[in-house]
Each structure stands twice: as structure tokens, then as C-alpha cells.
Design a protein around this nucleic acid. Structure first.
Lengths: 201, 201
DNA sequence: TTCTGGGGATGACAGATGTCATACCCGGAC
DNA sequence: GTCCGGGTATGACATCTGTCATCCCCAGAA
């Protein structure tokens, strides 16, 4: 039996997916968690073979959880299952050592299929998404530009961003300006929207 | 057997929920659609008893689909199942004649339970959410303020909003200013974030 | 060693944004 | 018949934002 961990914050979705996987002859869902920061402990305790991780979760993102798993339990295969097929997410997930990347738009049958394939050592990626990620090129933002843009996304005003990041207000303006240009936007709001769409934040 | 329609755009989630419901002795999922604008036709064709509708769907929102169902097939019970427990969503859903409102955070068992209860004529609403909706009061935005804020959410600049809505630029500034104040925000970005959180957009 | 790129900062400037007062038109409530 | 709120508009004003030039420091690459 393949021992699977399922990390997803929406109970209804998590339990439904667990039921679906549980119907497979060779799969056993031995752990369910609702937070990213509970993944590693549960995976260790239950000696899981494969971890299915959502990206957007409280506590820690699925991508960070994947990185942590890679470090602490390198034998565990990682399948990212996410709502948003953003190229930036895919790129970061694969860099952190994920073995598969599925979007929830895909047919449910792909889930069990991906579990079996990663155990055989395969990488499973939607070809369309892989192409999009390659076509788009890497995230052009520097770490600080990303920090500033993320802070601006909440609607903070320049002086607040400056205080939060221990920068001068002028420096905040400079970073925002370059971020806006790199995103091809006309102001901060649009830059935030574009960056979110591409998975840069 | 209770005949159920399931409308949800993410295949994986939709099929998983359908499987879950299908395991119930008295429930039969006779129709699945991925778009809001296919709900009424499918409901009519399959003579469904209960429609489970996600809110965010391509084609038409689940709330609009609920209103359409109410008009054209008044016998069909409506259960809204959504990711976001935003008070504004709940309020609008109930105004459009929904019989139940569930968030995907809730345990999966509540889904089948809600289906049976709405058929007995009950309304099913999470008590916490109902309290939040009542405590918060109604959406304070006027129709035009909402239009302008929605346009601003995409990152459009004042002159573009003005052109898109056939207004003068000064008027756009006026509406945005009142919307910002009503939201208790300090600028348009924050106003957009708050309005989205509360389900005003 | 020199060059380059990132992090950080300042000052200046133009243009965008947010606020306020004021005004007109309309339809519905009283 | 008057009052009120929503929709629309203008002008004036203070700030905030976005851009640019220019500077310093530091680490790694060539």
C-alpha cells in the first residue's frame, strides 16, 4: 500500500480528495493536515511515501513545506496540487524539489495517477504549464523589490512600507518604481495584479 | 433518491465532491457542470431536486445562477458552497433565494446533511457567518462607487476609469474618495482589498 | 584589479491621487 | 411642495506617487 499524506486547508475539499484516493486499491491516506507547518511532523510520524500539498495554506506555503520535507525526509515524494497554475509557482515548486505539479482544474483521475508515477521516479508536470513557465522566463524581481511589492499589495502607503522594512521612504519609491517597470505596469496596483497572476509574490 | 446537480469549475474538486456525495445511500449526483451559465439547462434536463453551486465560476457566478434558478425552476433547492465566507456573499446569496450557505472550510459531512435539510424546507447557514453578516451591516457602497472601485481594482488609472464608465475624471475621483472613506481605507489599494474581503465587489 | 549588480539613500520634479466645497438635475418620500 | 440622496460635474488644494540622476558600500565575476 502507498502511504499518502494530504495537506489542504479546506476541510471539505481535503476530505473529499481523501475519500477519492481511499477508493483506490493501492493507496492509503494515512495523514491529513490543514496547515503547512504540520506537514513534516505528520509525514515523519506516519512514515508516508508521498505528500500531496496545496500551496495556499495557513502557517506555511506548500512550496516551503516541500523544501522542508526535502531537507528532513528526502525519501518522501512531493506532489503539489494547487488552484492556480501560475508559472512562477511551478518554477519555484520544482526548484524546491517537488516531483509533480497538478492544477485542480485537471481531472480527478490524474491525482492517483501522479502518486503512482512519482513513486516510480517520474516527474509529472502538465505540458501546457511547463511550456508557459519556460516561455515566460524567470521572475525578474529582486528580493527587496518583491518585499516592497508584497507590502504594497495590502494597501500600505509608502511611509508604512518604509517603516515595516526599515527603509527610507525614497528607497521604497525606488524599488516600487523598478518593480512597476519590470512588471510592465502603469502603477502599483497594476504591478501587484500582474505579479500575483504570474506567481511572483 | 435525491437528484443533485453539482456546479464547480475545478474538475478535481468537483469530481471528488461528487464521489463523496455518491457514497451516500439516498443521494444521486445526476449532473455536473463547470460553468455558471450551464446550471439552469442541466437542472431542467435532469429534473434535479437540489443544486450545489460554487460562487466563483466562469460564465456566471453561483449567486446569479441561483437567482436564475429561482425564476425558472422555483422547485429546485439551492445550496451555495464557497471558498470564501464573506458576509457580503452570504447576504447576496440569501437575497437571491439560496436555501443554504456552506464554506469549504466546514467538515465534508455537512454537505450531505445540508442537502437533506434544505429538502425538508430548512435554511442552513453557519451561525458564525450569519452573526458576522448581521454585525457588519449592509454594503455601504452605491452602485457607481462599486463600479469605480471595481475598475480601480484592475490597476486602471483615473483617466481610464473615466473613459470606461463615461464619467469625468473629477467624478471618478469623487466616487473613489467616498468609497475609500466608507471602507475606512487610506488609499484605493486598501479600499479594494477591504471591499474584496467583505464581498462588496 | 576592475567591472558589475544588488542594496540603500538623497534631492528634485511632474503628474496622479485624495479631499473638500459647491453646484445642478432628478426621483421618491413625507 | 419640499426635502433628501444619488448621480454628475467643476475648481482648488495638499499630498502621494513615480521617475530620474547621482551617490555610497559591498561582494562576486572576469
Amino acid at each position: 500500500m502507498i502511504r499518502v499524506l494530504l495537506a489542504e486547508d479546506q476541510s471539505m475539499v481535503r476530505e473529499a480528495l481523501a475519500t477519492l484516493l481511499g477508493l483506490e486499491e493501492d493507496i492509503d491516506v494515512v495523514a491529513q493536515v490543514a496547515r503547512g507547518d504540520e506537514v513534516v511532523a505528520a509525514a515523519r510520524e506516519q512514515a508516508v511515501d508521498v505528500a500531496l500539498l496545496d500551496i495556499e495554506m495557513p502557517g506555511m506555503t506548500g512550496i516551503d513545506a516541500a523544501a522542508q520535507l526535502r531537507r528532513e525526509l528526502p525519501g518522501v515524494k512531493v506532489v503539489i496540487v494547487t488552484t492556480f497554475g501560475r508559472p512562477g509557482y511551478l518554477r519555484r515548486a520544482m526548484e524546491q524539489g517537488a516531483d509533480a505539479f497538478l492544477v485542480k482544474d485537471a481531472p480527478a483521475a490524474q491525482l492517483a495517477d501522479a502518486v503512482r508515477r512519482v513513486l516510480r521516479g517520474e516527474k509529472v508536470i502538465d505540458p501546457m504549464l511547463a511550456a508557459a513557465a519556460l516561455a515566460e522566463g524567470a521572475d525578474p524581481l529582486t528580493a527587496r523589490e518583491r518585499d516592497v511589492l508584497r507590502a504594497a499589495a495590502d494597501g500600505a502607503v509608502n511611509s508604512e512600507i518604509a517603516k515595516a522594512l526599515h527603509l527610507s521612504e525614497g528607497t521604497v519609491r525606488n524599488y516600487l518604481s523598478t518593480a512597476i517597470q519590470k512588471a510592465g505596469a502603469r502603477n502599483r496596483s497594476e504591478a501587484v495584479r500582474i505579479a500575483k497572476e504570474k506567481g511572483w509574490l
